[in-house]
């Protein structure tokens, strides 16, 4: 028989964690720019990211890869030295247009009309897996959330991944469409939209040499801004994609925890010939 839990016996162990944002990359791409990116992959991308691999990739995967590339450029990090890193990605409604196409094909052609690449390329884990594969990352590569508020899931996950002593850093990638677009039954978009992605390179050391910080812990007295919480509010990715001021602060609550992301300088590094 269980005893009733006496709350007075629970130790109030509350630990705040602060991580350094060593680098960041942001992109916002139109349908045309995505098509061009898929047709002609940047030469600066790792050789493992082949046209064959990315032929069926979701647009959010392509945008995420571009954001990662920019983050690595930002901190002059060697893309071949990421084996001990991990990935946490938070796509938002990944593969919705592909899912529309699949239900249409299933209805008209039956089981044999369903393409085989839908699961490997359009599942919540797919972005993280592709980044891991492309950059030779051997740590965990996890998809987080998948819908509204997914960035909170990814930020919590990233902080936990960095608890592992063997993990040198985490590539945190959030992506989504702004605005979400309607599609025809064949999966064709009916309104214009931008595919946006942000990549943050998070490291454990807090040297203040990076471009920001991530803090997770018990809530403080200052209130969480409603803009990060309410339905229909701009996501973290949307806010970062349109960030033009000197400093960026994003706060959100995750149950009994509070998350605060601070970034300095909105400068975005692009390689020559890349879409901005």
């Amino acid at each position: 028989m269980h005893q009733t839990l006496d709350l007075r016996l629970l130790e109030p162990i509350q630990m705040e964690v602060t991580l350094e944002v060593a680098a960041r990359g942001v992109c916002s791409l139109s349908f045309e720019e995505l098509a061009e990116l898929q047709r002609k992959l940047p030469r600066s991308w790792p050789p493992a990211l082949t046209p064959q691999l990315l032929k069926h990739a979701d647009p959010q995967t392509l945008a995420s890869l571009l954001a990662v590339n920019r983050a690595l450029t930002d901190c002059e990090m060697d893309a071949n030295q990421l084996a001990s890193w991990s990935v946490a990605s938070a796509p938002r409604h990944l593969g919705r247009e592909a899912a529309a196409m699949v239900v249409d094909r299933y209805r008209s052609n039956g089981a044999w009309g369903v393409p085989v690449h839908i699961t490997p390329h359009r599942s919540t884990h797919s972005v993280a897996s592709t980044i891991s594969l492309g950059y030779g990352i051997r740590g965990p590569a996890i998809g987080c959330g998948g819908g509204r508020g997914a960035e909170r899931d990814a930020l919590l996950t990233a902080a936990c991944l960095l608890d592992e002593p063997a993990c040198e850093g985490v590539l945190l990638v959030c992506s989504g469409w702004s605005p979400e677009f309607a599609v025809t039954p064949e999966g064709v978009p009916l309104n214009d939209s931008q595919c946006q992605a942000v990549a943050l390179a998070l490291v454990r050391t807090n040297t203040h040499a990076g471009c920001g910080s991530l803090t997770i812990g018990p809530p403080r007295l200052d209130r969480v801004p409603a803009s990060a919480e309410s339905h229909g509010a701009p996501s973290l990715v949307e806010q970062l994609a349109s960030w033009r001021s000197d400093r960026f602060t994003w706060q959100a609550s995750a149950g009994s925890l509070a998350i605060r992301l601070k970034l300095d300088s909105p400068t975005v590094h692009c390689r020559e010939g890349e879409p901005r």
Binding site: R148, T157, G255
Partner: peptide
């Protein structure tokens, strides 16, 4: 086909239905 109505993620709905107060997240691997 038309995502104007946004749904609350499942982990949040389960947490709310159970009346829990901690963080609730979904992971995919």
């Amino acid at each position: 086909h038309d995502p104007t109505v946004e749904h609350v993620p499942m982990a949040e709905r389960v947490r709310d239905e159970l009346g829990l107060s901690g963080p609730a997240i979904a992971l995919a691997a």
